[in-house]
Structures are given as structure tokens and as C-alpha cells.
Amino acid sequence: MHTWLREVGRGAKGARSLSYDEAYAAAKDILDGRATDAQIGAFLMAERMKGESLDELLAFVRALSSHNPKPLCAEKGVLDCAGPYDGRTKSLAATVPSAIVLSAYGVPVFLHAPEVLPPKRGVSIKSVVQALGLPIGCTKHQTDRFTFVDPEEVHDNLRALRSIREQLGVRTLLNTAEKLINLSGAEYLVTGVFHGTAMEKVSELVARLTYRRAMVVQGVDGSEDLPIHRASIVTLIEGGRVTKHRIDPGALGLESDVGAVRLSLAEHVEHTQAILSGKEDRFRNMVLLNAGARLWLTKCANSLVEGVETAREIIDSGRAWEWFCSLVQKPELLPAHRNEI
């Protein structure tokens, strides 16, 4: 590990990015236990200061993937919703109700997040799923169309690195790499970035991976969720080709002034239940937009417009709510009647 630390830790003028092979070797040193905690922390901080290259990120994604368990989903055509593991501080976790809408339609969806990590330490997707009473882990409940997994429960290396990351308290290359190791064996991916400057790098990274079709979103909180208070740019990756698309909620009749908002866990649950039950809610359009975009991504809709209309029908017909209720493992968390929400 000393070799790689010398290269990336030489300071502003002397540090260089590692080649793919060098970065893969460094990643294996970390994952195979040949690096000390001090060396791992120093390496991650040096990479943060230098700025991770595309080859370095790709090497860490592939090294982490080489330590994967077998794919966790048996279904074909799985959509992996790869959101940030440090939670939400400025937005609704629209990926959860959107996943219910898609799985109600028949698209197998895979969500994953551990207990919340630095730097944001927001409301974790795991806590939202738990509070809603949805199943956690790989079960045969109903079908495999909705799966949520805590990656630290199935990937030993991610669990082992938590302590170091907690102590560092800042974003590192692991925040990007961990989302893309494809625990589910998914064919489709939607993931997010925080800054527009990261869009190109992450899109090129995803293009080198094995997904059939993928979308990179500059989402609120750096999440995979499209905003509804502004237009946004997404990239669509297919066959190694990256294309840009501008998504304007206003042109779709979904514009809203809901921007950055801080929600409690209870509020995440309340809004999710209201939207899925067909009630009017200030975040309804956000779920319609994101579910519609994911139906388009997975080729269940020929266009974004068609995807949004399909999502609207799934919710308004009661299919989403019926499916959600069938998944909930704690009936006491459900309202007694749909109209009580």
C-alpha cells in the first residue's frame, strides 16, 4: 500500500492519478486486508484532495464487484435504483414510491442503502422502507419485483469500511463506487450525482459497466430523483453511448414550486402513503415524473410522456396502493381505510 500512497499523496504538484491496474491493486490491498486502517484513511483522503480519475473509480467498482455475493435478484430486467447512502436532507425520497409504482406495473426494482453514512447523514432510504413496513432483505414474499437490501448485510467489505468512513466524516470515492457494484445483477440502472461537473465522469464510468440501459440524474440531494421545481439534464447510456436529454417538468404539466425541503422520517412516510393511495399531495408530481422516467428507461414506455401517463394510471386506478398493501409486513402501519390518509 505504501507504493500507491506515495503516488497519490505527493501534494498538489506531485500527486498523480493511478492507472487502472494500479488502482485495482490498491483496491485489492484494501479489500483483502493488506492495508491498515491508517493507510486506508490516508489513501481515501489523498484521492479526495487529488480528485478521483475515471480509471480509479472504475477499478474500485470492479474490485468491490469481485467480492460480491451471487446476484441477489433472480428476475430478469431488474432496475437498480442507486441512490446516495448518506440519505436525504433536502427532498422527499421519491425513489421509494416510484419503486412501488414500477413494481406494481411488473418491473422488478432493487433498492439498496445501509444505515446512514457521512457526510450528509440525512434520512436514510433504509429507515423509510422500515417505517413503511416494507420487506427488507431477499425474501420470496409475493415476488422478487420489489427488493430492498442493506448492502452491508451482504457485502463484508462495505461493512468493514464503515468505521473508517465514519471517522473521516467526508465524501470519498467509495460514495460513488459503492452505488455501482450491481448487487442485484440488474440490467437497468438509475443513479444520481450532486454537481453537474460530475455528470460526465459518472456517465462515462457507467458506460464502461455492464448495464443494458442506464440513466444518470443530477438530482436533489445528489439522488437519482428528478426535481420538479426546475428543468434538469440527464444522460442516457446504452450500448456504451452517452446522450444528453433535457427534462422539463413544466412541459409535462408537472411543474411545482417544491424545491429543497427538509422532511422528518414521519413526513417521508406520510407523503409516500398519500401519493400511493391516490391522494393529492405536493410531491405527487415528483413521483409521477420519476416513475415515468424509469418506465421509459426500462422500455416499458416509448417516451417520457407515455411513462408519466402510465404512472398516473397505476396510481389513480388503485393498483399502486393495492400492491403496496400486499407488500407491507406490518399491517398496523397501514391506515385502517385508504381514505383516512
Rank of each mutant, 00 (worst) to 15 (best):
T197H: 10
T197C: 13
T197W: 03
T197D: 15
T197V: 15
A198H: 12
A198S: 15
A198K: 09
A198N: 14
A198W: 08
M199Q: 06
M199A: 03
M199E: 05
E200M: 10
E200G: 07
K201N: 09
K201Q: 14
K201V: 10
V202R: 12
V202W: 11
V202Y: 12
V202D: 06
S203L: 03
S203C: 03
S203K: 07
S203V: 01
E204Q: 14
E204N: 13
E204M: 13
E204I: 00
L205T: 01
L205V: 04
L205Q: 03
V206G: 09
V206R: 08
V206Y: 03
V206H: 08
V206M: 03
V206I: 03
V206A: 10
A207D: 02
A207I: 05
A207V: 04
R208D: 09
R208S: 14
R208H: 13
R208K: 14
R208G: 08
R208Q: 14
R208C: 13
R208F: 13
L209V: 11
L209Q: 06
L209Y: 02
T210L: 10
T210C: 09
T210H: 13
T210P: 07
T210W: 08
Y211C: 09
Y211I: 07
Y211S: 10
Y211F: 09
R212G: 10
R212I: 11
R212Y: 10
R212K: 15
R212W: 05
R212A: 12
R213H: 06
R213G: 12
R213Y: 01
A214L: 00
A214C: 06
A214Q: 02
A214W: 00
A214Y: 00
A214H: 01
M215R: 05
M215I: 09
M215L: 11
M215P: 04
M215A: 08
M215F: 06
V216K: 03
V216P: 04
V216L: 11
V217W: 01
V217L: 08
V217F: 02
V217R: 06
V217H: 01
V217P: 01
V217T: 07
V217E: 02
Q218C: 14
Q218V: 15
Q218A: 13
Q218S: 14
G219V: 08
G219Y: 04
G219S: 09
G219C: 07
V220S: 12
V220G: 08
V220Y: 04
V220T: 15
V220E: 13
D221H: 05
D221L: 06
G222Y: 01
G222T: 04
G222L: 02
G222S: 04
G222N: 08
G222K: 03
S223G: 10
S223D: 13
S223F: 01
S223Q: 07
E224W: 00
E224R: 09
E224D: 15
E224C: 13
D225P: 02
D225E: 12
D225M: 10
D225T: 14
D225K: 00
D225S: 15
D225Q: 06
D225W: 00
L226N: 07
L226D: 05
L226V: 10
L226S: 08
L226Q: 05
L226Y: 02
L226A: 11
P227R: 06
P227Q: 08
I228N: 05
I228H: 02
I228K: 05
I228A: 10
I228R: 05
H229P: 03
H229N: 14
H229W: 14
H229C: 12
H229Q: 09
H229L: 05
R230V: 04
R230F: 11
R230C: 07
R230I: 04
